[in-house]
Write a protein that binds this DNA or RNA. Structure first.
Length: 520
RNA sequence: GAGCUCGUAGCUCAGCUGGUAGAGCAACGCCCUUUUAAGGCGUGGGUCCUGGGUUCGAAUCCCAGCGGGCUCACCA
């Protein structure tokens, strides 16, 4: 627990102060405190009240909070109490609180929790302040708070000791139009979740919870985490997606379902990837991917309005309007964003054969654009890779990319007129993918074939290829109505709405390697 | 997993081409009854991330490791 002798000594010293506080007749760890207001309530109610009004009608209040600043003045003193992210000044005079309470005040440290009663006034400089009459001790900070002006700026410390980060409430993107405090990031995240639930609840969707531990990790292409159930003596996978269970529910007659929950993928970590992340998935019977495109724009617009009061957001130096959307087919996007350095733009026919697609790869490589390509891989996979290499960085403003190759979409329905392409889209904001949606494949025989193809790729060494899920095929065999389904990354959407540039800034306790203190 | 980069007091940071570690905040003591990054006087606080190496001498240079950040890869 202790970082140093300094901390150990400080702890002992505070322990001694607790004894003295106890000797003053205060409980050292009392069980409750009854306040008349929270600090935000005081501000909401009396922000505009003048000094004269406060003097004329003495307003008695009691509030509780954590001491975040304290200034002694001999036989008086000022302190700032913080509660729910807001601070209110208190003024303590020996004359007014009495000998014992003033001794208590002298024993207080930065970080301590106290309750005070008193009346509101304005100081010489006009600051709304409580003129304290009694102090009640509530809890002690046994460790030193971070630097009072800068707070904690060490990113590692912020993530490891989020509890400190939150009450010091340090700033992200300082000085920019996207400046935001840590606490507000997580308040917005909560609002976002509420807005999404509101969106779906009012449209007749029901919220469900499906297994997080699954015997077959399906519904996405990713390496799973493995765990073990002792009594059943079976390995289970932490889910990589809820998809296949949610579609079983549509078979079961829940025409509109959604789930907001964690997915786990045993993959790399980056500013856009955390091993556990929160995903919204929703399914709507009788809808196709066109319906979902319209719905997607509506969701994002409405959520932005509810969370930020505007569809304008700032991310990494870009102003983004979440109310204005573009749509390209994947092939159109490749042509649209084809780099000049790689010569003339491709023609739409170039996507029709492996040879012409491979030629595009060669042109990109000649232009020193890194692109993964294995000769003999399916044409659709090559096209998807080209899209990612060429277009993704340009998709700063909200953009829907539709019509994906069948080869990379084992669960999507083919386009009636182009069987090598499926009714699938992804949407991008700020240069990264936020969501993925498609008209769900509901033909059990076709689904079985797709799984078998995936199995072949798996045997060929692709660890992320889908496994066979017999029960899911059986569910489809009972009849899945035409259905549209979509997944939206909640962490990433939070990033877009808060301007946080790292996914770790929107996850309260992001995964870090264990850190060993000298004592361990 | 790879490349680059950072790691000095509880916190925020300085410390030059190598000469044996500093400031502010916080802490401790004293003074101060409208202050607010309060102020004044004084005091204590260091495994300079860890382990090797080079050197008369290493926070500083070199190597390895640990942890963080960024970029790339994988992926959403």
């Amino acid at each position: 627990m202790f970082e140093s002798d300094f901390e150990r000594n400080l702890f002992a010293l505070r322990r001694e102060k607790l004894n003295q506080i106890s000797a003053l007749g205060q409980q050292t760890y009392p069980n409750q405190y009854t306040a008349t207001h929270t600090i935000p309530e005081i501000w909401a109610k009396y922000r505009e009240t003048t000094a004269e009004e406060l003097e004329a009608h003495r307003i008695q209040v009691s509030v509780a909070g954590r001491i975040m600043a304290i200034r002694g003045q001999g036989k008086a003193g000022f302190a700032h109490l913080q509660q729910n992210g807001e601070r209110l000044q208190i003024y303590v005079r020996k004359d007014d609180v009495g000998e014992e309470n003033f001794l208590l005040y002298k024993l207080l440290d930065l970080g301590d929790h106290i309750g005070v009663t008193g009346y509101l006034f304005r100081t010489r400089t006009g600051e709304l302040t409580i003129h304290v009459q009694t102090i009640t001790f509530l809890a002690k900070a046994m460790l030193a708070l971070p630097e009072k002006y800068h707070g904690i700026s060490d990113i590692e410390l912020r993530y490891r000791q989020r509890y400190v980060d939150l009450f010091t409430n340090s700033t992200l993107n300082e000085g920019g139009p996207d400046e935001i405090r840590v606490r507000d990031v997580f308040i917005k995240r909560a609002k976002l979740l509420k807005a999404i639930r509101n969106f779906f609840d009012t449209r007749g969707y029901i919220e469900v919870e499906t297994p997080m531990m699954q015997p077959i990790a399906g519904g996405a292409a990713a390496r799973p985490f493995v765990t073990h159930h002792n009594t059943l003596d079976m390995d289970l996978y932490l889910r990589i997606a809820p998809e296949l269970y949610l579609k079983r529910l549509v078979v079961g007659g829940f025409d509109r379902v959604y789930e907001i929950n964690r997915n786990f993928r045993n993959e790399g970590i980056s500013t856009q990837h955390n091993p556990e992340f929160t995903m919204l998935e929703f399914y709507q019977a009788y809808a196709n991917y066109h319906d979902l495109m319209d719905l997607t724009e509506e969701i994002i617009k409405q959520v932005a309005q509810e969370v930020n009061g505007t569809t304008i957001t700032h991310f990494n130096g870009h102003e983004i309007d979440l109310g204005k959307w573009r749509r390209f087919s994947m092939r159109e996007a490749i042509i649209e964003f084809w780099p000049e350095s790689a010569g003339a733009k491709p023609a739409i026919e170039d996507f029709n054969s492996e040879a012409t697609a491979a030629a595009l790869v060669e042109r990109l490589r000649a232009a020193r654009i890194h692109i993964e390509y294995k000769p003999g891989e399916p044409l659709g996979k090559t096209i998807a890779t080209i899209f990612e290499a060429v277009a993704e960085d340009h998709l700063i403003q909200p953009t829907i990319i539709y019509d994906f190759p069948l080869a990379v979409s084992p669960l999507s329905k083919q386009k009636p007129d182009e069987p090598d392409w499926v009714e699938r889209f992804e949407f991008y904001i700020a240069g990264f993918e936020l969501g993925n949606a498609f008209s769900e494949l509901n033909d059990p025989e076709e689904q079985r074939k797709r799984f078998e193809d995936q199995l072949k790729q798996r045997q060929g060494g692709d660890e992320e290829a889908h496994q066979m899920d017999e029960d899911y095929v059986r569910a489809l065999a009972y009849g899945l109505p035409p259905t549209g389904g979509e997944g939206i990354g909640i962490d990433r959407l939070t990033m877009i709405l808060t301007g946080a540039r790292s996914i770790r800034d929107v996850i309260l306790f992001p995964l870090l390697r264990p850190h060993h203190t000298p004592e361990e």
